[in-house]
């Protein structure tokens, strides 16, 4: 142990007036502690802190990417649901309008049929009425000639006292 004792005890600078960083007697201590502390820090950062920080970063990245993927999937689902809703709506609308059209046509047919029936009934009633009128007229006409004949007989009988036969009277009335 050949200590030249450059540092032996004091808090004094070893070489007064010298430039401390170039004081080579301190170099062994400096380098020794540099190696020790640097190696310690290297080991900790390499084996413990580095993987820990890396784990935290990748875990967060994974969580964010997972959340984004989940959001995208949810959006896709929502879009699919919306499309399904739209097609269902369009289908329902088409069905409803078809149904309405059908109803309308059925109603129209019904109305037309009822109208035709009523027309027919009315026409029949009208024809019957016409026939009745004609018959009544004929009856009335016959009634009129009989009345005229009887009147004529009555007039002749009253005026002349002659009894005219109904046939003669009828001929006379007719002429």
């Amino acid at each position: 142990m050949a200590d030249e004792a450059p540092h032996t005890a004091t808090t004094e600078a070893p070489h007064e007036g010298g430039f401390p960083p170039f004081d080579t007697t301190t170099f062994p201590s400096q380098i020794f502690w540099l190696v020790v502390t640097f190696a310690f820090l290297f080991t900790v950062l390499w084996k413990v802190a580095g993987p820990r920080i890396n784990g935290a970063i990748t875990q967060r990245r994974r969580a964010i990417n997972g959340a984004i993927a989940g959001a995208n999937a949810a959006r896709g689902e929502a879009e699919a649901a919306e499309a399904a809703y739209r097609t269902a709506l369009a289908g329902a609308r088409a069905r409803a309008s078809a149904l309405a059209e059908e109803n309308r046509q059925a109603l129209n047919a019904e109305v037309a049929r009822a109208k035709a029936e009523a027309d027919e009934k009315a026409a029949a009633a009208m024809a019957k009425a016409d026939a009745d009128i004609a018959a009544t007229r004929e009856a009335a006409k016959a009634q009129v000639s009989v009345a005229a004949r009887d009147t004529a007989i009555a007039i002749v009988a009253h005026l002349t006292g002659d009894q005219v036969s109904p046939e003669d009277a009828a001929d006379a009335v007719k002429s």
Binding site: S29, T37, F38, A49
Partner: peptide, 30 residues
């Protein structure tokens, strides 16, 4: 044959190494 002293610089080196190790390890929770 070279004496190795624990100096003011050694103290700072130990502080730096310990502080950096502890901070970078404990501040992070995966």
């Amino acid at each position: 044959g070279h004496p190795i002293y624990f100096t003011n610089q050694s103290l700072l080196m130990v502080i730096v190494a310990l502080a950096a190790s502890l901070f970078l390890t404990l501040a992070v929770k995966p």
